[in-house]
Design a protein around this nucleic acid. Sequence first.
DNA 1: CGGCTTTGACCAGCGC
DNA 2: GCGCTGGTCAAAGCCG
Length: 584
Amino acid sequence: MSKMSSPSSSEIEEKRVTSIIHEVVEVDCSTEQEVTKEDKPKCSKEEMGEVKEENERLKTMLSRVEKDYNSLQLRFFDIVNKDVSMKDIEDSSTNSHEEIDEEPEFVSLCLGRSPNEYKKDAKNIENPNKPKEKEDMEVNLSLGLDSKYMVPMELVSDLSPMNSSEELPKEVEVEEKGAIFSTNKSTKVINVNDEISELLPAKRVRVSVRAKCDTPTMNDGCQWRKYGQKIAKGNPCPRAYYRCTVAPACPVRKQVQRCADDMSILITTYEGTHNHPLQVTASAMAYTTSAAASMMVSGSSTSSSSSHQNQNIHHNNSTSFGNSPTQINGLNFNHHQFEQSRTPKQHFFIPPNHNNLFPTITLDLTSPSSLSSSNIPSNVPRFSPNNLSFCSTQQPNFTPISSIWNNSNNKLGFINNNTNPNIEKTQVRPFNHFQENFYQNQNCMTSYQTPSRQALAETISKAISTDPSLHSVIAAAVSSIVGQGSNNGGKQEENRENGLGAGLNLKLGEYPQMVSNNLLNQNGKGCLKGSYFKRLSPTTSSQAKNFMLLQPSLPFSVSKSSASKPPSIVNNINNFDLDKNKHN
DNA sequence: CGGCTTTGACCAGCGC
DNA sequence: GCGCTGGTCAAAGCCG
């Protein structure tokens, strides 16, 4: 697989475009019944010329789309910056005595750029011909987990969702990672991974991940040791307590509990900050949850003070975000989604620890929307502008990323579930849609009918169905796809080779291949269970049945293998049986 | 034998 | 103060 990453991204793109158009050409030629054998070479030459022209056009289109995207992003940053400045003035007049490092009332996303850089860019917008602009863009426009994420492991040590009292020194890697926050009070740059630790002491945020999972725990790439189990109130399923054992003193804990309403749903709640290097898959999950937690912090700071029910976090941050969907690590946080999410029952979720002590944000990976992939003909290229899609730019209805930015109906959403004013709970429901779209994307790939592509899709399918940890990997991938608007030049190659970067540095127009590489670069590890993409093989469904029967007394006991050996579903089911027999 | 899970006991916070 | 609940501890046992 690593061999596939050797050509440059532009070469890959070019080859792909050429091969696809070749296929189209072949189909066209074969359908022309009047074409004689003598005409074929002529036809081919003409078509080749057309293909080359088309290739050039596509490349031009691609660069134009990238420029549009960059331009839009610059404008966005400019708006954010203005809002921040205005808010600064207001705050300084009313709260002139506040400490600078106080927990900010509002936190705005910079998505990989520091405010200073915004200012530079804002100037560049006024002077669009300034040659340095593009260079700056390439260097700075890194969203989510960019190439810098592949820094030495010492620098990746603080990626976990939230704060804990035991923290690493903060000075280490301020500029080293992708997503950056800025506060409106001091235009202080806050790294999602580091500075969130500074934000959170006052509010211990937890990130809860809801996922359909047959295994007792979700494989998130970390090693966990179970230290307790309790029957919590309101849920017959026991709640298991795990702590991270990758490093001896790692403070990160997680709670795992089945959803009372749907026992196929596993609720994993993370708390704390890893004080050690993380594996690829762990980093992905940690970063994603970190971003969610960051958003929670920014929103909850105001939502908690308001008794207004169902107040939306995005709304809280409207000062910073305007009406555009907000992205953290590639996740869109959109108040429209909140409205949608209120109606279906399944969209409402109370995390396992529903006490008042910890604001909890929920990443909901469950229940793909009604747009079931099985309802979509497999030979139809699928792309919904409302969805995040990995279909390549060759899709006939290709939509530039800028449309995703501006689309208010984007399905990646952020929901604040403040039905109880005393409880700060927030939902993020981006991944179910992502799953759906990833599935669609597989069809996009297979629809090209290129054998290698098909094989690739099958390989991905297998990887996905064998290891549920792909949840986190894909989460990172999707975030980078949304966030990564500009290329990183040569770093991309390097990142692809390293695996993590591959998942985190996707270039516009390379989505299918890059995604494939990402998934397969995770050593075959994955998290999206087969049911999402393969709609459950007969064996899995029967396993699910067994699992449901055993569920109420199930111990969550495979954390040991979570990092090194992804648990086989069958083995786990057997373990469950053994355990049950043992208890009997 | 080391590392892990299990499980009852214990502790702290909160509401009444 | 008391009871409830969530969270943690630690001894015992299991497993590779």
